[in-house]
Write a protein that binds this DNA or RNA. Sequence first.
DNA 1: CACGCGTGGGT
DNA 2: TACCCAAGCGT
Length: 347
Amino acid sequence: MKFYNKLISWYLQNKRTLPWRETKNPYFIWLSEIMLQQTRVAQGLAYYLKFTETFPTVFDLAKADESTVLKMWQGLGYYSRARNLHYSAKHIANELNGEFPSTYKEIIKLKGIGDYTASAIASICFNEPTAVVDGNVYRVLSRYFGISTAINSTAGIKEFKTIAQSLIDKKQPGTYNQAIMDFGALHCKPQNPLCDSCPFANSCVAFEKKLTKALPVKEKKIKIRKRYFNFLVIKTNNNKTILSERKGKGIWQGLYEFPLIETEQIINKNELISNQYFTDLFPNETTISLFNKKEIVHKLSHQHLYTQFWIVETKSLENATISWESIQDFPVPILISNFLEEFQPKN
DNA sequence: CACGCGTGGGT
DNA sequence: TACCCAAGCGT
């Protein structure tokens, strides 16, 4: 029996029922694929439902402000996905007359869509036999064939793509692609794979050689940078505050935050008020209190943010124009969102 | 092309 | 605890 027959047979008996599996509308498939990049189904599902309800067509998404899109994306992370999604929605609506491109070659030209996503959309929506290679596929193939080439090396990326392409069922590429990913997610799991009940147990190299735990091989591990953030949560006597949009290349681009003083280490109140930026911002008298007695450690994939929220009360400021009631309309990082939840509980 | 980009769950 | 992992992509 061919690899794909065994795989699809497993899939038809074990696949998850998911809303994006009930459609071949490329706009919906696109949405789901972007949301699920580096993201678990359990986390992305609610966002998918919210997006498809609020933006039922690509035109609705294209019409929205980027800030609105980011607000809906808030909490899902990797916010460049949302910005690129919105950018491409405008491109499709305005330049392509709302028609989603229908071949791998055209789909991959869209911003935010790479080899994986183009393959997924082309196969699922347009029946084009282009194999997806995601984290699940790397794991399944490296184990099944006993391949120890690092999955994040240039050689590995090429090797696994070639193998994946050679295994695809050309008559039902979309089903095949989803099958191998679901198999990886549910059966050939990173930890504790279900080898005892595996349909591939009699032909899996890793199972035979007891290499399951050693595969796939991944090179390098990331370095974590420590940063020290001091947010100035301003409350003027006319009940306004300051929020500003993060620009540039770093984290949280396009999201909003309180005025930020970044330091080399944890600081105390005296060090705060002697900071140049602080004295420039507050020429007048202030009342300062530290909201969190112990610094909050917010962990991103490459950074640990040791964070202090300073409540600064002062008389009215020219720059302080944001009313406290309107803060909830701005897209903010989870770190800020969690703070606001504690500082100003709803209801 | 090696690196940076979020958040949450699991061990 | 400190890792690892999750339907990757842009630069």
